Simulated assay, not measured.
Amino acid sequence: MSGPLRLVIFDVDGTLVDSQGDIVASMHHAFAELGAPAPSHADIVGIIGLSLDVAMARLAPDLDSAAHDALVEAYKRSYMSTRAQAGAAQSSPLFPGTRQMLEMLGARRDLLMGVATGKSRRGLDKLLEGHGLQKIFVTQQVADFHPSKPHPAMLHAALEETGISARDAVMIGDTTFDMDMARAASIATIGVEWGYHPSAHLRADHMLNRWADLPACLDQLWDAAA
Rank of each mutant, 00 (worst) to 15 (best):
Met1Gln: 11
Gly3Asp: 14
Pro4Lys: 00
Arg6Pro: 04
Arg6His: 10
Leu7Thr: 13
Asp11Gln: 12
Asp11Met: 05
Gly14Glu: 04
Thr15Trp: 00
Leu16Thr: 00
Leu16Trp: 01
Val17Gly: 00
Asp18Thr: 04
Ser19Gln: 03
Gln20Gly: 07
Asp22Met: 06
Ile23Asn: 04
Val24Leu: 10
Phe31Trp: 09
Ala32Trp: 02
Leu34Ala: 08
Gly35Gln: 05
Ala36Glu: 07
Ala38Thr: 14
Ser40Asp: 11
Asp43Ser: 14
Asp43Cys: 11
Asp43Pro: 15
Val45Lys: 02
Gly46Lys: 04
Ile48Asn: 03
Asp53Glu: 09
Val54Glu: 15
Leu59Trp: 09
Pro61Cys: 10
Asp62Ser: 11
Leu63Met: 15
Ser65His: 07
Ser65Arg: 02
Ala66Arg: 15
Ala66Gln: 15
Ala66Lys: 08
Ala70Arg: 15
Leu71Ala: 07
Lys76Trp: 02
Arg77Lys: 11
Tyr79Ala: 02
Met80Glu: 15
Ala86His: 13
Gly87Leu: 05
Ala89Pro: 00
Ser91Gln: 04
Leu94Gly: 07
Phe95Lys: 01
Phe95Ala: 01
Phe95Ser: 01
Pro96Thr: 00
Gly97Trp: 01
Arg99His: 12
Arg99Gln: 14
Met101Val: 08
Met101Gln: 09
Met101Glu: 09
Leu102Asn: 02
Met104Ala: 07
Gly106Asn: 03
Arg108Ser: 03
Arg108Asn: 05
Arg109Met: 05
Leu111Arg: 09
Met113Gln: 08
Met113Lys: 03
Gly114Asp: 04
Gly114Thr: 02
Val115Ala: 06
Ala116Gln: 13
Ala116Leu: 07
Thr117Trp: 10
Thr117Phe: 14
Lys119Ile: 05
Lys119Asn: 11
Arg121Leu: 13
Arg121Asp: 13
Arg122Thr: 14
Leu124Cys: 05
Asp125Lys: 15
Lys126Thr: 06
Leu127Glu: 12
Glu129Lys: 08
Gly130His: 01
His131Met: 12
Gly132Ile: 02
Lys135Tyr: 05
Ile136Leu: 10
Phe137Ile: 14
Val138Met: 02
Gln140Val: 12
His146Thr: 13
Pro147His: 08
Pro152Ala: 03
Pro152Trp: 03
Leu155His: 10
His156Ala: 14
Ala157Ser: 06
Ala158Phe: 06
Thr162Cys: 02
Ile164Asp: 07
Ile164Gln: 02
Ile164Leu: 01
Ser165Trp: 10
Ala166Trp: 04
Arg167Glu: 14
Ala169Gln: 11
Ala169Gly: 12
Val170Arg: 02
Val170Met: 05
Val170Lys: 04
Asp174Met: 00
Thr175Arg: 12
Thr175Gly: 12
Thr175Val: 11
Thr175Phe: 03
Thr176Met: 08
Asp178Val: 04
Asp180Gln: 06
Ala184Lys: 13
Ser186Thr: 10
Ile187Phe: 00
Ala188Cys: 07
Thr189Cys: 15
Glu193Val: 03
Glu193Gln: 13
Glu193Asp: 06
Gly195Ile: 01
Pro198Ile: 03
His201Pro: 14
Leu202Thr: 02
Ala204Met: 04
Asp205Phe: 01
Leu208Met: 07
Asn209Ser: 13
Arg210Asp: 11
Arg210Val: 13
Trp211Thr: 11
Ala212Ser: 15
Pro215Ala: 00
Leu218Cys: 10
Leu218Trp: 03
Asp219Glu: 12
Leu221Pro: 11
Leu221Asn: 12
Asp223Trp: 08
Asp223Arg: 14
Ala226Ile: 09
Ala226Cys: 05
